[in-house]
């Protein structure tokens, strides 16, 4: 276990080099975020005061996007999948095969260190942005909700990592995985709740989506925070999230085992 702590700390030191990049990235990210908020503001202003969209008041809608931004900076896989695919393509994973280290745990440690540094770098611009929108920002109802939110966010991070990891392992079979990564990203973007809260969709679509892994990558923790997932829905949501984390973990292990048999260590 100790060795992965070392990987984590090395990862933090390495990604600290990119802190300015992360800061720039976070600031640029606020541009489309504000655009979306402007868009919703215009839609709400055409309704009577106190009007709602599928049960969302304006403040809840604004908070939704702000929390999405926070959860996203904590859990999004950005560089990891490209690096894993490159490691396979360039034959860099050979060294991991002969060392007493598990590649997936190694990558997971690096993922955590990357997210940690990114979140710290992005903290200032995001907090400033939330402060500017404080009139519309709501907090979770109680401490218990906070705890559930954090637990669910952690699981969302694991789920995102395992799915992206599996996708990157396609590099064992095809030389160019970026198109597949972008296609997956598109589905995560819309079905995960990046673009809009999923529960404004028609009921049957929402029900169908809840069987897919995508809502548990982002939407579920955010709806816990907003107090929209309660009671049986909350329990069921956690069960589904845990199930998807388990399934994606097993899938990642399986694909790795299959892939490693095809591995030819080109260039390594």
């Amino acid at each position: 276990m100790m060795k992965y702590w070392n990987v984590l700390s090395i990862g933090i030191q390495n990604t600290l080099v990119y802190r300015v990049n992360f800061l720039v990235r976070a600031c640029f990210g606020l541009i489309p975020l504000s655009a979306t908020l402007f868009l919703w503001d215009t839609i709400y202003s055409a309704k009577e005061p106190g009007g709602n969209v599928a049960g969302y008041l304006l403040s809840q809608m604004v908070s939704y996007y702000l929390i999405v931004t926070i959860v996203d900076s904590l859990t999004a896989v950005t560089e990891d999948d490209w690096q894993i695919a490159a490691d396979i393509k360039d034959g860099n994973i050979s060294q991991f095969l002969i060392k007493p280290i598990d590649y997936m745990s190694y990558r997971l440690s690096l993922f955590f260190s990357g997210r940690l540094v990114y979140t710290i770098a992005a903290l200032a611009p995001i907090m400033l942005f939330i402060y500017l929108n404080r009139a519309h920002f709501v907090l979770p109802p109680d401490l218990f909700t906070w705890a559930l939110f954090l637990l669910s966010t952690l699981m969302a991070g694991l789920l995102q990592f395992f799915i992206s990891y599996t996708m990157a392992l396609l590099a064992f079979w095809v030389t160019e995985v970026s198109t597949f990564i972008f296609i997956l990203f598109a589905f995560e973007h819309i079905a995960g709740g990046h673009l809009f809260p999923l529960d404004i969709l028609p009921e049957p679509v929402v029900v169908a989506l809840k069987f897919s892994p995508f809502p548990y990558e982002l939407f579920f923790p955010v709806s816990i925070y907003l107090g929209r997932a309660t009671g049986a829905e909350l329990v069921l949501g956690f069960a589904m999230q845990a199930a998807w984390v388990g399934i994606s973990y097993l899938l990642a292990r399986l694909v790795w085992r299959r892939g490693i048999m095809r591995y030819t260590a080109s260039g390594g």
């Binding site: 868009l39 809009f196 404004i200």
Partner: peptide, 22 residues
Amino acid sequence: ILVEMIWFALQLGFIHVLYMQT
């Protein structure tokens, strides 16, 4: 080309969802 088309469709889907509300 497929990637770009999916992303374009996704943006149009977003507009469709917005106009379900207004």
